[in-house]
Computed example of a mutant assay.
Amino acid sequence: MHGLRGWETSAALAVGTSGSTGDSKVVLLSAGALVASAELTHARLGGPGTWLVALPTTHIAGIQVLVRSLVAGTEPGVMDLSTGFRASGFATAARGVLTRPGPHYTALVPTQLARLVATDGPGLAAIRAFDGVLIGGAATPPSLLERARAAGVRIVTTYGMSETAGGCVYDGVPLEGVRVRLTDGTGTAADGTEGRIEIAGPVLALGYQGGEPFGEWFRTGDLGRLTDDGRLEVLGRADDMIISGGENISPTRVERVLAAQPGVHEVCVVGVADPEWGQAVAAAIVPGDPRTPPDPDRLTAAVREAVGRSATPKHIAFVPELPLRGPGKVDRAAVARSFG
């Protein structure tokens, strides 16, 4: 680390962000933050156990599975991802993990979970046997969560990022010692229960390589709200907000409505240029059965009723798959470009 400043030399790990909404940055994490994240995760899940690595270890989610294994003193199972993620490959890799004593855990992105619960096969049987399945890296459609939980999968939704050593809010509740607040984006407390998400605590990174160290609080690029029972609900990135006819529209809210409709497998909602409205809401949808996609009029009606007229998609395109960038994150810029 020759040439780095004093605080930067305390870093034990340098990991790149996914760059899904801009240029990738290198996050510097201390050993203390990595270990704290692992220990707090085990405390929330019910104790140390054996982990299955099913995510690339070039990203923080995969790296933290290795760190948790080191902290637990257990040898992780490792899934071969060289040819992509397949339910059969997951089942094979899980077999060796599930025979070991103690709790069994893994971490997945929503796309992987969807493939495992798509059919009643060995992949679903394997994922059911885990004591905890962390799901993060991207927004998970409520319909997918309901389907997985109904199938007996012990899902734990996570929110976090490289800057917080991975997931630090589980099922809407911060890990012990992690603090979350909602602000107007400048550090001032937001009015009501919605605002920019800021995070503090022992899992926080030192800072970005070549930048200034983080302070007590890290200001994320995400918007959130507090539910009636005090849980954090992530509304999506502030940069992704669609402004149509002067109205601010959360694409995440529209996606949740569309994803819950029969015949919709995956969906991404973006804003596209519109001469009259400034931006128009556009939805790229992966149908469950490409031969019989859902009725667009029924989809727009569902959004109109649940979110409002201004949020109703003006453009709907049925696509075979959504472009990905990073571990399971949809490339929203590529989706927007596809609408021309």
Rank of each mutant, 00 (worst) to 15 (best):
G6M: 12
S10G: 12
A12Y: 10
A12R: 13
A12S: 14
L13K: 09
A14S: 13
G16Y: 11
S24T: 14
S24F: 01
K25G: 06
L29N: 01
L29P: 02
A31Y: 09
A31F: 02
A33L: 10
L34T: 09
L34H: 09
E39M: 12
L40Q: 15
L40F: 06
G47R: 10
P48H: 03
P48C: 06
W51V: 11
L55E: 07
P56N: 08
T58Q: 13
T58N: 08
G62M: 02
G62S: 05
Q64M: 15
V67M: 07
S69D: 03
T74Q: 03
T74D: 02
E75P: 00
P76F: 01
P76T: 03
S82Y: 02
R86V: 02
G89T: 01
A93D: 06
G96H: 14
L98R: 12
T99F: 03
T99K: 15
T99H: 13
T99I: 04
G102V: 11
A107H: 08
A107T: 10
L108S: 04
P110K: 12
P110R: 12
Q112P: 09
Q112I: 00
Q112Y: 02
D120F: 02
G136S: 11
G137S: 08
G137L: 05
A139H: 12
A139T: 09
E146N: 13
R147M: 08
T157K: 01
M161Y: 03
S162K: 04
E163Q: 06
A165T: 05
A165E: 00
G166T: 09
G167C: 01
G167P: 05
G167D: 08
G167I: 06
Y170D: 06
D171C: 00
L175E: 04
V180K: 10
G185V: 00
A190P: 08
A190Q: 06
G192I: 03
G192N: 09
G192W: 04
R196F: 10
E198V: 07
I199T: 04
G201Q: 09
P202T: 07
V203D: 02
A205H: 04
L206E: 01
G207N: 08
G211S: 13
G211V: 01
F214I: 11
G215Y: 06
G215E: 04
R219T: 15
R219Y: 00
R219Q: 14
L223I: 07
L223T: 07
L223S: 08
R225Y: 00
G230H: 06
R231T: 14
R231Q: 10
L232S: 07
V234E: 00
R237L: 07
D240N: 13
G246H: 12
E247A: 15
E247Y: 13
N248C: 01
R253L: 15
E255F: 03
E255C: 06
E255A: 05
A259W: 03
A260Q: 04
A260N: 07
V264W: 10
C268I: 05
V269Q: 04
V272S: 09
D274V: 00
P275K: 05
P275W: 05
W277F: 15
A280N: 11
A283R: 11
V286N: 04
P293W: 02
D297F: 11
R298F: 02
L299T: 06
T300D: 09
A301Q: 11
R304C: 08
R304Q: 12
R304S: 13
S310M: 14
A311Y: 07
K314F: 04
H315P: 00
H315K: 15
I316P: 12
P320W: 08
L322I: 05
P323W: 03
G326S: 06
D331Q: 07
R332C: 03
R337S: 15
F339D: 02
